[in-house]
Design a protein around this nucleic acid. Structure first.
Length: 871
DNA sequence: CAAGAATCATTTTTT
DNA sequence: ATGATTCTTG
């Protein structure tokens, strides 16, 4: 795997000569000049622009020279390598503003793609602030999937869909595949549908249609049936008039390839393309971008173009990874794949923040940008405006251990600030306790809880913190986790609406046929399936037909008939009732709301709230159809902002966020770097983990605190762990070793017996514990084995000269964080209470505002009274 | 059809 | 160990 040297793109002499599209000759002269002369003159609308040129327009003020270059280099391909905290979003939005104000394109001629809705929303917001109102005129700013989906809806017939096709989520996908597996008589124990879904997804991520999947891979599932299953899955999707997430891009690519005139239409439309987080693009996204970024060509006839992209002529090869595409010369395809002149595409990303390799992102896309887009200009943003010196130095030094990177060195003009701390604790419980206390200290010192985050590698680590915070009465919020639209009640409600909207949506109908319970079980559904298949009609129509026969027991028959009639009625109401009202009627009349109202479980109330929220969110759409089209793509939970709280999330979901204080627990071998990633991905995996560490550190503005525990429970059993190798890769100068607060500092004041911490003193005073020694031994062994690359910085290790231990004085005075209300608790013994997390219970002990509650499900817990309510 | 028993896996997550 | 999911039994 060759590294792309970190050098500026060399000017390509023939570059300006390729003028495929006469129509676009207008923009060509600047293409010639943009490399030599950074401050090229604007062309269209140039007078006004030139008047401003001396000082530069207002919006350029305050940009540093690199940022300014990234904004002003409008022509030709540009790669902006934007390190963490270097003003990436600002560059993107300012660039759009610049394009518009220079008159180079109108809003609808700019394609601007992001990965997440959140990022898209933020860009819209910032653009709005910059430009005033006119954001509405940016119809092509959105996520890859929403934009690809939009294009696909316009041309749906060309890919055998109807324009109101449904977008299936993972759950639907799995259920559909399960049916296919059953039809093929494949044991879905041995070959789980989820696994196949993952496989198909990865093929789609790589841009592979069923016929293009390498034979070996296709055969790897279910004794060679994998490929066939993929093909029949695709067929089934067409019948259901549905597409999964992967299809939005893949079918879009197929659309473009099979219909050059359609492609050309979009190539002409998009004068400028901007891509955010380019390091996260997968092959399909890359191919899609690449098609759009090609200068529209009149000379290329349809067959030629088709050959070029190789859908029919050379399957497999046509969709090779970008790396292969880039090395045009060695390709056997007889020069067909010459580098194509590309338009004004600007990709912004950071190879050091590529952390989604495991779901198909190709770091190679960004590493090979200069190959893929010849004549590309690479601009590095290295000035960091976020973190203090020590934090930045630690992060930079750590990431410098990676080999596969384009190379950037972040620098800051900020002060050094506090050193990054590394704290060892005996076990994960002590770790949680220690962090809890430090957070309380910070809070006492006046820090805003919103500026504190705990970033973990894996979500199971969160529970311990949650437990701890609940006992402390420390408000926290978990970011990530199940998405709003993935919740059962939301999906059920959507299934009702989908069934109303498109009677052919078998998956939706099947989901709610017996929710709430109607006595229509598996047997009934099976019968309907048989009917539907025999007559080739949708499930719902089969239900209508079966009701007329006496194949069902009277009871089932009756309730199925009622259901069919209900749907008929709702459909009739659709045109005369507002869609929000219709939704309420449906949820009401179907008994769905009632089902949850009757439910006495802990989260029933929350579910009803979610349903209300769903209906509220429908108001933003014109009608039911519009709502359903977007809902599967756009429905993310808006952070229930509001009260001040500590954020708890995985490192992955922390990308793009920043906090004053960042806690990074669990830096242990096996957990972080994750053993599994190491096993599966080898060195590349290690590098991705290291990037994750880098992302974690660079989230911090002022304080970054790392932790590792010597003992951790993994899969239920306690095991001794060794500190992460990443700790050794931190520069000693910027790191301070501290002692865990949750452990020995107390001298037995806490409620935990001293016996467990007998060896804490030894542990605290030097790293001579068996675990540490074993760690060193293991490390030496690993290095000698030579398997993984060496290169631990023994000299640099902060632990190298570590001997004495600075015992930080721990002041435990002052108020408890969860302030007592001062009044006597409003609870009394034996009160029946409800707690969001633990459910129902009764009070067994009262201690100021701290209650001991015997929960029915969760057992006895200590809880602060503000977290429970009397029922 | 529903409740208890057995089984199972268990990183990361967007769309 | 745990919690979720699927299977079996009443």
């Amino acid at each position: 795997m060759a590294l792309i040297p970190a050098k500026k793109a060399s000017p390509s002499p023939h570059h300006g000569a390729i003028v495929g599209a006469k129509r676009f000759a207008m923009t060509e002269p600047s293409k010639l000049s943009h490399q030599a002369v950074p401050e090229h003159q604007p062309q269209a609308g140039g007078i006004a622009a030139r008047a401003r040129a001396a000082a530069g327009p207002q919006y350029l003020a305050g940009l540093n020279p690199e940022q300014r270059e990234a904004v002003e280099t409008l022509d030709g391909p540009v790669l902006v390598l934007a390190g963490a905290g270097t003003g990436k979003t600002r560059v993107l939005t300012t660039r759009i503003a610049h394009i518009l104000s220079q008159g180079r394109a109108r809003p609808h001629e700019i394609l601007s793609v992001t990965f997440t809705n959140k990022a898209a929303r933020e860009m819209k917001l910032r653009l709005g602030q910059m430009l005033g109102q006119a954001v509405e005129g940016m119809p092509w700013l959105g996520t890859f999937h929403s934009i690809a989906g939009r294009i696909l809806r316009i041309h749906a017939e060309l890919v055998q869909l109807k324009s109101n096709f449904t977008v299936l989520d993972v759950d639907d996908q799995v259920r559909l595949l399960k049916q296919l597996l059953q039809a093929e008589n494949i044991d879905d124990k041995r070959w789980p549908a989820r696994m196949l879904a993952g496989l198909i997804d990865s093929w789609k991520n790589r841009g592979l249609t069923p016929s293009q999947v390498p034979a070996g891979e296709a055969a790897s599932f279910a004794n060679g049936k994998g490929g066939k299953l993929y093909a029949s899955y695709q067929e089934r999707l067409k019948i259901l008039n549905a597409a999964d997430f992967g299809d939005l891009l893949l079918e879009n690519i197929r659309l473009f390839r099979e219909n050059p005139d359609v492609l050309r239409q979009y190539q002409n439309r998009f004068k400028f393309i901007l891509v955010d987080e380019y390091q996260d693009t997968n092959v399909a996204q890359y191919l899609w971008l690449r098609l759009l970024a090609q200068a529209p060509s009149h000379t290329s006839t349809s067959p030629r173009l088709r050959g070029e992209v190789g859908l029919h002529s050379n399957p497999g090869e046509g969709l090779s990874p970008p790396g292969l595409l880039a090395e045009a010369a060695p390709l056997p395809a007889s020069g067909e794949r010459e580098k194509v002149p590309s338009k004004n595409i600007c990709c912004v990303g950071d190879d050091d923040q590529s952390i989604y390799g495991w779901r198909g992102a190709e770091v190679d896309n960004i590493l090979r940008f200069e190959h893929d887009f010849p004549g590309a200009k690479v601009i590095r943003l290295e000035r960091n405006y976020r973190s203090t010196g020590h934090i930045l130095a630690a992060a930079s030094h750590l990431i410098a251990h990676n080999e596969d990177r384009l190379g950037k060195t972040l620098r800051t003009e900020d002060e050094d600030g506090e050193k990054v701390t590394v704290t060892g604790s005996w076990d994960s419980e002590e770790e949680a306790r220690g962090i809890g206390e430090e957070i309380e200290d910070l809070q006492r010192a006046g820090e805003n809880l919103n500026e504190i985050a705990i970033l973990v590698r894996a979500s199971f680590q969160m529970r311990e913190f949650e437990d701890r915070f609940v006992t402390l009465g420390l408000p926290y919020r978990v970011i990530g986790g199940p998405r709003f639209y993935e919740r059962a009640e939301i999906r059920d409600a959507l299934a009702y609406l989908r069934t109303i909207n498109s009677p052919a949506d078998d998956l939706a109908f099947e989901r709610i046929i017996n929710v709430p319970k109607r006595g229509l079980g598996d047997a009934t559904v099976q019968l309907l399936h048989d009917h539907a298949r025999k007559r080739r009609i949708p499930l719902f129509e089969a239900a209508r037909a079966v009701v007329e026969t006496d194949e069902l027991k009277p009871k089932a028959r009756g309730s199925l008939r009622d259901l069919v009639l209900q749907f008929d009625r709702w459909r009739a109401q659709r045109d005369v009732t507002a869609h929000t009202e219709l939704a309420e009627i449906v949820l009401d009349e179907s008994g769905y709301t009632e089902m949850w109202q009757k439910d006495r479980s802990a989260d029933a109330a929350g579910r009803l709230d979610n349903l209300k929220e769903l209906i509220r969110s429908m108001e933003e759409f014109e009608n039911l159809q519009g709502f359903l089209e977007h809902i599967s793509l756009v429905m993310d939970r808006d952070g229930e902002a509001g009260e001040e709280a500590v954020s708890l999330m995985t490192l992955h979901s922390a990308k793009g966020l920043e906090f004053d204080n960042v806690f990074l627990p669990g830096w242990e071998e096996g957990l972080f770097p994750s053993q599994r990633t190491l096993d599966e991905q080898g060195r590349a995996g290690l590098e991705e983990e290291r990037r994750l560490a880098h992302v974690g550190l660079t989230r911090a503005r002022r304080r970054a605190k790392i932790y590792f525990a010597t003992n951790r429970r993994i899969h239920g059993t306690w095991s001794t762990t060794i500190p992460s190798r990443f700790l050794d890769e931190l520069p000693a100068h910027n790191v301070e070793i501290t002692e865990s607060k949750g452990g020995s500092g107390w001298g037995g004041a806490g409620g935990y017996g001293p016996s467990r911490f007998d060896n804490v003193e030894a542990f605290g005073s030097s790293y001579t514990t068996p675990g540490w020694q074993r760690a060193q031994a293991n490390r030496a062994r690993n290095q000698n084995r030579g398997g993984s690359r060496g290169g631990f910085d023994e000299q640099q290790s902060p632990f190298g000269g570590f001997g004495r231990n600075k015992r930080a004085p721990v002041v435990i005075e002052g108020e408890l964080v969860a302030k007592s209300t001062g009044t006597v608790s409003e609870f009394s013994l034996d009160d029946r209470v409800f707690h969001q997390k633990f459910g129902y219970g009764h009070v067994v002990k009262i201690d100021g505002n701290k209650l001991t509650i015997a929960f029915e499900k969760a057992g006895e817990k200590k809880v602060v009274d503000s977290f429970v309510e009397r029922v």
